[in-house]
């Protein structure tokens, strides 16, 4: 029983990180019906910015987090402006190839600057509490709570603010929104900024939990977060959160009860099976065709 609880706690931690990254995929998809395949690499850039801020500038945790989030958001907005926007009317496959190319660029640019893996210093004091066999680390609790807070803020923005309303409107019908006075390009930029900043925050938290970072760390994590977004229903914000936690739980439980090499295999099988039965994901709905 304690073992299961312990694994559930681990699942919450991993799931939080997947959920944060999955939100970036789903938000961009929701507004542009495009998969930003560079998003996993933006998560990696977040981890490296964490390294730069913590080691080069010797900053404490809060400024490190903010700097990484802002830096990645800025990068996300620039990428959208210069790489994706010119292709908005182009065939979908061109945008996908461009996104993959941007991802490769980010990996290799980071590699050129950092030929060797980097070690992230311990930014937060980490104490471990033990409750009748269940060990809880403060870092774990912190990652889970911070992720939930960020997701709660996002949910508020999307549901309660004019900008969030505009995001939802654009995801429904991009052509009508400007006719009501909504500046669509600006909203798309804001969406990229918010979505990628969550990826940056995930990068920082990941780096704190697994402190050796390299330029390829975003590939597998990015793919899995993408799966999480699809499992939850791509384009659906709450779906991405749920998908992230489901994927985290599946992974951890596989490792807990089966050989750990089965982990990714099972995760990808989950995607395939779920999509056969629910092609739009858990919370996704087929978009009504416009008449």
């Amino acid at each position: 029983m304690t073992y299961v609880l312990q694994q559930l706690l681990n699942a919450l931690q991993v799931g939080s990180i997947y959920a944060l990254i999955a939100l970036g995929y789903t938000m961009v998809y929701g507004i542009l019906t495009m998969i930003n395949f560079a998003h996993g690499d933006l998560f990696m850039v977040g981890a490296f910015l964490c390294f730069v801020a913590a080691v080069t500038f010797n900053l404490p945790f809060v400024p490190v987090l903010l700097l990484s989030m802002i830096g990645v958001a800025f990068l996300g907005v620039v990428i959208e402006r210069f790489a994706y926007k010119p292709l908005r009317q182009a065939p979908r496959v061109s945008a996908i190839i461009t996104a993959l190319g941007v991802g490769l660029f980010l990996e290799n640019f980071t590699l050129a600057l950092n030929p060797y893996p980097k070690q992230i210093p311990q930014l937060l004091e980490n104490t471990t509490w033990t409750f009748s066999g269940l060990s809880v680390s403060s870092l774990q609790v912190f990652v889970i709570i911070l992720s939930l807070v960020l997701m709660w803020i996002l949910d508020l923005i999307v549901r309660r603010t004019m900008v969030g309303m505009a995001m939802r409107a654009i995801s429904w019908d991009k052509t009508v929104a400007p006719l009501l006075g909504v500046p669509v390009n600006m909203i798309i930029s804001v969406t990229f900024a918010i979505g990628t900043s969550l990826g940056g925050a995930a990068g920082v938290m990941y780096a704190l939990a697994y402190p050796v970072i390299d330029p390829y760390m975003g590939i597998m994590v990015g793919w899995k977060a993408f799966i999480a977004a699809v499992v939850g229903g791509i384009g659906n914000i709450r779906g991405a959160m749920i998908g992230g936690y489901i994927l985290g739980a599946v992974e951890i439980m596989v490792v807990a009860f089966m050989p750990s090499t089965y982990r990714d295999f099972i995760a990808f099988v989950l995607l395939l099976v779920l999509l056969i039965f629910r092609p739009y994901g858990i919370l996704g709905k087929p978009h009504p065709q416009k008449v």
């Binding site: 505009a166 939802r168 409107a169 429904w172 019908d173 009501l180 006075g181 009504p288």
Partner: peptide, 15 residues
């Protein structure tokens, strides 16, 4: 906008 409430549809037009 089918995914926005009546009120939200109206509010958006005040942008």
């Amino acid at each position: 906008f089918g995914n926005l409430t009546v009120m939200e549809n109206l509010k958006l037009a005040t942008w």
